[in-house]
Design a protein around this nucleic acid. Structure first.
Length: 930
RNA sequence: GGGUGUUUAGCUCAGUUGGGAGAGCGACGGCCUUACAAGCCGUAGGUCGCAGGUUCGACCCCUGCAACACCCACCA
């Protein structure tokens, strides 16, 4: 086809191929040390939310880090001493799970190789896979300071953890105790409340008859969703005011299936209205019952092993059974004994471990806790006082609700991978806390004869993360970095970890540094798929950011999504859905396009649907900017920077427009409105620079049309505007802006080896040119009007048309003369003719610019009915607008109460509309009378 | 049960002190015009969830309702 043929003639111009430039530039930037803090200027720092060291980059990460990188690049260009601190997290439980699975594939049980070997394996795995996340961050263009990269289990962090733990312990803010905690019977560790997900599931409410012990044949009925726990019942509770049971309080129950006698007690916890009004109390296996048990001094009967298998405290018939097996057996036995009164279907929230997915148990065990109240108070105050600000503000509510009801933090985990708790026990069970065993002996004056055994548990991963902002900078040493870059400026994170992490950082940082960890918390929305579903591996709807950058075939994508599925039966559905959504796979869009998409969709919304069409659109935008640059370079090859220059109105106009955009982008960045920043850049580049300026400047740079000085002025403006746009866009489109910028002549660039370190554009009032803007508005109006006629009348854009101007002012006439050449080019006009007031006006399609009529003669070009229809449409629009305006003006209250300028504006509008309508009506009649 | 948020064009979403409803994508029509067909030009399409209220004037402020989403706490 012609298109392909013509493409061959254009081979001299390089196409936009992101893969050719992106990795190259990252390498250069990193090698030259551009990511390091400059050591000059006001410090600006952000600590990366440490990704799991063995993890991979998902869309949420890519989104967050893209936002941060734009902030960092923006501030760096503004001359700040910028540090984006890199680091990774050891991700205790997740990593332990992965390593355990790896061992299982080798038919090795973790318990067989022991703690030391296991931890060795984990370190090995960390070394092996830790590079993945770094590579991915580099592909994203993240300008992280790699040289000081940290890891939550490196020596310095570990030392900080020990320091914090021992100090909190010595102050009495860490204690150890036997408590009921959430227990994961598969991982065999405690987990925090936050790591438990309650999901509604179908279950049953079983009503069980409990006979009284006094041979009276009386009984009461209790209802439970967990019949197997009755084996650990310590009491039955009724409400103290419940007339039905008042007389039974203090009597005993003979607990079925066991030989135990348990009391009937009264407690306000019981809801008289629910079920029978009687509740079985199992203090060792239910959080509420635990409280009741405490109040009534009931025995705690733990009937589970740490794997939730019935233990020796239960009747022998059930010992060794798994909890679900035991449930069946208990129910069968009750049924047989005639004690199962009713089985009622019941929806209930089942608590499951976030990581393992199994039902967690409230389980009695020895754990370490942080006494949280005294830490929470100043942390709440910091946000109340506005020292830390959440963006958007309403997330502060989440924070307050959580912080004001905060419970002591269970920090011990029965795992191997993590910071082992620095506590030692002697043979009598006395506990000694110090940074290491030697220090413990000194601190507690223990002789070498005393045998010490270290606590087996490790700390919750979030314990070390809580120290992240200051420990990564060298704390407890008062390093230069700590003094310079702490507090950090902003924390960018998802709302899901405000409680897990943000709140704990605030508490710990205030406690140990007397400083805030950060001044602002920018809470991002959650990236979902196009249907608004959370992206997850199990749903098979996840997207790998690198697949959007590099592209992926449909087959590979299906393979990737259905590969390690937990539920293989989902595979077919996922495959089908994937092929439907991405029949051609995903094209390679490059990092810049992906990043720009992230900025554009970073609204204040809580969930953000990720739509591939947006990426498509923004990759076209990248291509557009690329080609515009090409155009600029093609037309400025002979630019002489030393020659005399004359700037035309359009040069002054685009320069002025650029100022407006610079101002808008700065405001958007200061208020964390990445979407508005992206929108502004998109519009200035595409709508103003490409669609108008490049078109308008064509006649001025053609060697025939313009004077040398004029041509030079336009060439200069082309280069200068492009160069400024590149700097403006650099934080968002780092790669292509650098690639293009390198081709800008030195005379324009004014030094520097990289766009990264050039100053960010600043608003310059002096370059704002209102009169140029007015002229361009006028010009655009004429061009748009004639384009409208052309479009509506189906006049081919290749056909040159004569244009007449009638009833214009002297100013119109002057402008016409001035811009004749531009107009001719833009409209593709065969001729432009100014008609005097007394001239005979031929029948024509009309467009009004103020009072001036822009006319396209109809003869041979325009259909009468089509023109009438077009005029009708316009008349209709204007009539509606006029009646709206009239209603306002005719309302005395409006005239009286609205501000003068608003009233005046409406009056002017009415006058204008009336005049326009009169002209349009007259025109319509003329055409109709033909 | 408590809390937070969302509801604007076919779809995804902007709309910043209350004063003429916008963008992108999609649709439709025209165009290979020498930076870009990954393009250009034009057009259509909205009771701004519903009902009240405040106001001269409400997408915007207030009240109530509905639907959806998320979070927290959960009655065994």
């Amino acid at each position: 086809m012609y298109n392909r043929a013509s493409a061959i003639f254009k081979v001299s111009m390089q196409k936009y191929q992101p893969q050719d430039i992106e990795q190259k530039w990252y390498q250069i930037w990193e090698d030259r040390g551009y990511f390091a803090p400059s050591g000059k200027g006001t410090p600006y720092s952000i600590a990366i939310p440490p990704p799991n060291v063995t993890g991979t980059l998902h869309m949420g990460h890519a989104f967050q880090h893209s936002l941060v990188d734009s902030l960092i690049r923006f501030q760096r260009m503004k001359g700040k001493d910028t540090l984006w601190q890199m680091g990774t997290d050891h991700a205790g439980i997740s990593t332990q799970i992965i390593v355990t699975e790896q061992l299982e594939r080798e038919q090795i049980k973790a318990s067989d190789i022991g703690r030391e070997k296991f931890v060795e394996r984990a370190w090995h795995w960390k070394e092996e896979s830790g590079g993945t996340i770094s590579r991915q961050l580099r592909r994203l263009g993240a300008s992280l300071h790699w040289e000081t990269e940290r890891f939550t289990m490196d020596e310095g962090m570990s030392n900080a953890v020990l320091e914090v733990f021992t100090r909190l312990y010595d102050e009495g803010l860490i204690y150890r105790g036997k408590r009921l905690v959430n227990w994961d019977p598969v991982l065999k560790t405690s987990i925090s409340d936050l790591e438990v997900e309650s999901i509604d599931e179908d279950g049953n409410l079983w009503h069980i008859r409990y006979p009284l012990a006094d041979e009276s044949d009386q009984s009461i009925v209790v209802a439970t969703t967990r019949p197997e726990t009755m084996l650990g019942d310590s009491a039955v509770a009724v409400h103290p005011d419940d007339e039905r049971y008042k007389h039974l309080i203090g009597q005993s129950i003979r607990l079925p299936l066991t030989d135990r006698l348990i009391p009937i007690i009264a407690d306000h916890y019981v809801d008289k209205e629910f079920g029978s009004g009687c509740v079985k109390i199992t203090p060792a296996h239910d959080f509420n019952d635990y409280e009741v048990g405490n109040r009534h001094d009931l025995p705690l009967i733990n009937i589970f092993t740490e794997e939730a298998i019935i233990n020796e405290n239960a009747p022998s018939a059930y010992q060794g059974m798994d909890r679900f097996e035991a449930r069946k057996q208990v129910l069968a036995d009750l049924e047989q004994a005639g004690l199962l009164v009713e089985t009622e279907p019941h929806k209930m929230a089942v608590p499951r471990g976030e990581k393992s997915g199994v039902v967690v148990e409230p389980y009695l065990s020895d754990q370490w806790f942080v006494k949280i109240d005294s830490l929470a108070r100043p942390a709440i105050k910091a946000v109340e006082d506005g020292d830390i600000e959440f963006i958007p503000r309403n997330y502060e509510n989440n924070y307050f609700v959580w912080m004001r009801n905060i419970q002591d933090w269970c920090i011990s985990r029965q795992q191997w991978w993590g910071h082992q708790i620095p506590a030692w026990y002697d043979d009598d069970g006395n506990v000694y806390v110090a940074k290491d065993e030697a220090e413990a002996r000194t601190k507690y004056s223990l002789s070498d004869a005393v045998k010490l055994q270290r606590d087996e548990d490790v700390l919750d991963t979030w314990f070390s993360s809580a120290l992240w902002t200051f420990a990564t900078l060298g704390w407890p040493d008062q390093t230069h970095a700590l003094k310079t870059y702490h507090p950090t400026d902003v924390m960018v994170t998802g709302h899901d970890i405000i409680t897990f992490w943000v709140s704990r950082m605030i508490m710990m940082t205030l406690k140990f540094t007397d400083e805030l960890p950060f001044k602002k918390v920018y809470v991002t929305g959650l990236v979902t798929d196009a249907e608004g579903q959370k992206m997850s591996k199990s749903k098979g709807n996840g997207l790998d950011p690198l697949d959007i950058i590099d592209g992926i075939s449909a087959d590979d994508l299906v393979e990737k999504r259905t590969n390690h599925l937990l539920q293989p039966r989902m595979a077919e559905r996922i495959a089908k859905a994937t092929r439907k959504e991405f029949p051609e796979g995903i094209a390679a869009h490059g990092t810049d396009a992906l990043r720009f998409t992230f900025y554009a969709i970073a609204t204040r919304s809580r969930t953000i649907r990720f739509d591939m069409n947006r990426v498509e659109g923004y990759s076209h935008f990248c291509n557009k900017l690329w080609n515009a640059a090409n155009f600029v370079f093609m037309n400025t090859k002979d630019f002489d920077s030393t020659g005399e220059m004359e700037y035309s109105v359009i040069d002054r106009w685009i320069t002025s427009e650029l100022q407006t955009s610079i101002k808008a982008v700065a405001l958007a960045m200061d208020t964390y409105r990445f979407d508005l920043a992206a929108k502004e850049i998109y519009e200035i580049v595409r709508d103003e620079f490409c669609d108008w300026y490049l078109e308008l400047c064509k006649p001025l740079i053609s060697t025939e049309g313009a004077s040398k000085t004029q041509r030079r002025g336009t060439q200069h403006t082309l280069l200068k505007t492009l160069e400024t746009l590149l700097r403006l866009a650099h934080p968002f489109l780092p790669f292509m802006t650098e690639e293009i910028w390198q081709q800008i002549p030195e005379s324009i660039r004014r030094g520097g080896d990289t766009i990264m370190l050039r100053p960010y554009p600043e608003f310059d009032e002096d370059l704002v040119d209102a009169s140029a803007s007015d002229d361009l508005a006028w010009l655009k109006e004429i061009v748009n009007g004639s384009r409208n006629i052309r479009g509506e009348m189906d006049i081919s854009s290749s056909r040159e048309i004569p244009i007449l101007f009638y009833n214009g002012s002297a100013r119109d006439q002057a402008r016409l003369t001035q811009y004749e050449q531009l107009l001719r080019t833009l409209i593709r006009a065969e001729s432009l003719t100014w008609l005097d007031t007394d001239a005979e006006v031929p029948l024509a399609a009309t467009h009004l610019v103020g009072d001036m009529q822009v006319l396209v003669p109809m003869s041979g070009l325009i259909d009468k009915d089509a023109e009438i229809a077009r005029l009708d449409k316009e008349i209709d629009r204007k009539t509606k607008e006029r009646s709206r305006t009239e209603n306002k003006i005719n309302n005395p209250n409006f005239i009286e109460k609205a501000p003068q300028e608003v009233v005046q504006k409406e009056r002017n509008k009415l006058t204008e509309l009336t005049s326009t309508l009169t002209k349009l009506e007259a025109q319509k009649e003329r055409v109709a009378s033909l």
